[in-house]
């Protein structure tokens, strides 16, 4: 019963927080350029509007196109249970859950790419090819970070790595942790299709990656896909925040507040980056991702060196 209560609480918190973060990003982008921008809860209204809309399916699509949103959304909902809300332990925590974490992302990605082929149009194929290409780099970099965290925390469970009662001490592992955090931040940008890698707001066919794969969705399917993307942003941010917060207050509620503040800070940072930077040329993105991997690899060398 305790597990059920923590799952419901987690989902409640994450479910509301995800669209809110998306609203924060859009709001910061608007404020930075002096616009008032849409209200903070605009994503909520969009999602509700979409759920009332009808689905339009093209003739060339098969059952893959219809079940892709279901798989993507449910895998991301499961993934949200892996994240410890700082002192609140994650509902799902066991040795080796990082593997489950990565491969659940994988199954979501498989159906997303397959559905983009299903529409039978070349732009979706272009997006799928870029998604498959970039995911190779991000996944390897992500695993590199997991290796470092496993070495530092001497355990292979995600909640042990980032949600432990005594956090990874910055003075002891300072240099490695800085590299891990920066590499994870780059991975966050790439995985969620933020500015340096891909422009979420653009509709120019040749430049889209994540947008183009869900171009053909409508109604509830589109709502599921958008909500999944928001969840994904929260999950990746949720991994980053506990590493940044050096201290644990002990009680559940204040830690939760700190966690929320951390999430909002990351959302604001992403918003700022999106307004000041332009999208990188596609063959330059590869170097950015290799940079993320290099940072992580350097961190790995540092941890090995310290253990020598």
């Amino acid at each position: 019963m305790l597990l059920l209560k923590s799952i419901v609480l987690q989902w409640l918190y994450v479910g509301l927080m995800a669209p809110f973060l998306c609203g924060v990003i859009i709001k910061t982008k608007a404020l930075v350029v002096g616009r008032v921008g849409p209200p903070l809860f605009q994503p909520f209204y969009d999602l509700l509007k979409l759920t009332r809309k009808q689905n339009v399916y093209s003739q060339t699509t098969t059952f893959i196109f219809r079940c892709a949103p279901v798989v993507v959304l449910s895998s991301l909902l499961i993934l949200s249970l892996f994240i410890p809300l700082i002192s609140q332990p994650a509902p799902i925590r066991f040795a080796g859950d990082i593997l489950m974490f990565v491969y659940l992302l994988g199954i979501g990605r498989f159906f997303l790419i397959a559905s983009s082929f299903d529409t039978g149009f070349s732009f979706a194929g272009m997006g799928a090819s870029r998604e498959a290409f970039f995911s190779c780099f991000t996944e390897v970099a992500f695993f590199m970070n997991l290796i470092i965290l496993a070495l530092l925390a001497q355990s292979i469970s995600l909640s042990q790595m980032i949600g432990a009662s005594t956090p990874l001490s910055w003075p002891l592992f300072g240099p490695a942790l800085i590299l891990v955090v920066s590499s994870l931040f780059l991975i966050l940008l790439a995985e969620n299709g933020r500015i340096p890698v891909d422009d979420p707001a653009t509709h120019l066919e040749l430049t889209m990656i994540h947008e183009v794969m869900i171009l053909d969705y409508s109604g509830r399917d589109l709502a599921a896909m958008l909500y999944g993307a928001m969840l994904k942003f929260l999950i990746f941010a949720g991994i980053l925040v506990p590493l940044l917060v050096p201290v644990r207050l002990g009680q559940a509620f204040p830690d939760l507040l700190v966690f929320t503040a951390g999430l909002i800070a990351i959302a604001v940072l992403v918003g700022i980056i999106e307004s000041i930077m332009a999208r990188l040329r596609l063959n330059r993105v590869r170097h950015l991702l290799l940079a993320a991997f290099a940072l992580a690899f350097f961190g790995f060398i540092v941890t090995l060196w310290s253990r020598l």
């Binding site: 397959a114 995911s135 190779c136 996944e139």
Partner: peptide, 18 residues
């Protein structure tokens, strides 16, 4: 794992879908 995913989405997408 990642490249295998790319391979099989490619084959499944190109042969069966579209």
């Amino acid at each position: 794992g990642c490249l295998a995913l790319a391979c099989f989405t490619k084959v499944y997408g190109i042969v069966f879908l579209g």
